[in-house]
Design a protein around this nucleic acid. Structure first.
Ligand SMILES: [Mn+2]
Ligand SMILES: [Mn+2]
Ligand SMILES: [Zn+2]
Ligand SMILES: [Zn+2]
Lengths: 151, 151
DNA sequence: ATAGCACTGATAATCATTCTCATTCTCGTT
DNA sequence: AACGAGAATGAGAATGATTATCAGTGCTAT
């Protein structure tokens, strides 16, 4: 996320937390910033490595739980079952993921609005056919990332 | 999965296991059958509930591990991080999932070949643009299932 | 300054999953 | 039919990630 956008997101987070009677403490700011700077969702381990000197593990876990409950963060799980967190889509915009099956990296990727429209339409159709009310979708593209390809 | 197809799948599994010097034991047969009959991927808990009288938990876990390593089963993780298993796509055919955010159910859904072709094409395009070599994709449609809708 | 909450961080507890190991089973060979 | 090697089983212990506890600290409004 580029800095201007990240600053705006941080502002939005501050307001949301205030509304819920929660504070935007240093710990929470550290986590939000780390995720805003990341090219994709980060595991708890990634975050712990990055922030270990400034944020004990138990506090990191609590912070992630609180921010996810407040819908500031979205939590998902990768193929190995380890939790990954990213800023919620109302902060980052809708997007999808490239998942490298070799190194495990997960990277954000956006689709042009035109194509995204096509997808939304076919998702509607498929869901409707099954009596299912679709509210969103998630696409993971699996394969080999650029770095892993060249070796 | 309908029975004729399930029988064929079971046959294919028997052959694959034999090739690997593994046996198609009663425990493995129970698990493969349970998954062949299921409308979507099952959690370890689902399977344990269904098979508890015939298969101790430690054996269930080992069976799942062995079958997944042999590529008979595919393992994924749902939003809450619990493992889900299903027959590998070379047995079931390629498909996607409807994920109910209310009750947690996950159901298989197939897309017509025409639409699947469209998806494959745009996946190629998106991946290529990022220097990524796509080998597959996964689509989860999230929302409210038919049962949860009507109450 | 005081009271009431929110927050922190160390630690203990939980829960799913994996590991260990003694025992049993299968299958091919004598 | 008895034998031996490797495969499989099942009970229980161990692991690892995550969550819960709780005593102490910090903010903020009155
Ligand atoms: Mn993302
Ligand atoms: Mn499936
Ligand atoms: Zn990679
Ligand atoms: Zn439902």
């Amino acid at each position: 996320m580029k800095t201007a956008q990240a600053d705006r997101a941080e502002q939005a987070v501050a307001e949301l937390l205030a509304d819920e009677g929660l504070r935007f403490t240093p710990a929470r700011r550290l986590v939000v910033r780390a995720l805003a700077d990341a090219p994709g969702p980060l595991t708890t381990g990634d975050l712990h490595t990055a922030l270990r000197s400034r944020l004990p593990l138990s506090s990191l876990y609590r912070t992630l739980t609180v921010l996810a409950a407040a819908r500031v963060l979205a939590r998902e799980h990768d193929g190995g079952g380890v939790a990954r967190y990213e800023l919620a889509e109302w902060l980052t915009g809708h997007h999808h993921h490239l998942v490298c099956l070799v190194c495990g990296e997960v990277r954000d990727v956006s689709i042009d609005p035109q194509t995204e429209g096509t997808i939304a339409a076919l998702v509607e159709r498929i869901a409707g056919g099954a009596g299912f009310e679709a509210t969103g979708h998630r696409i993971d593209i699996e394969g080999k990332c650029a770095a892993c390809r060249r070796r």
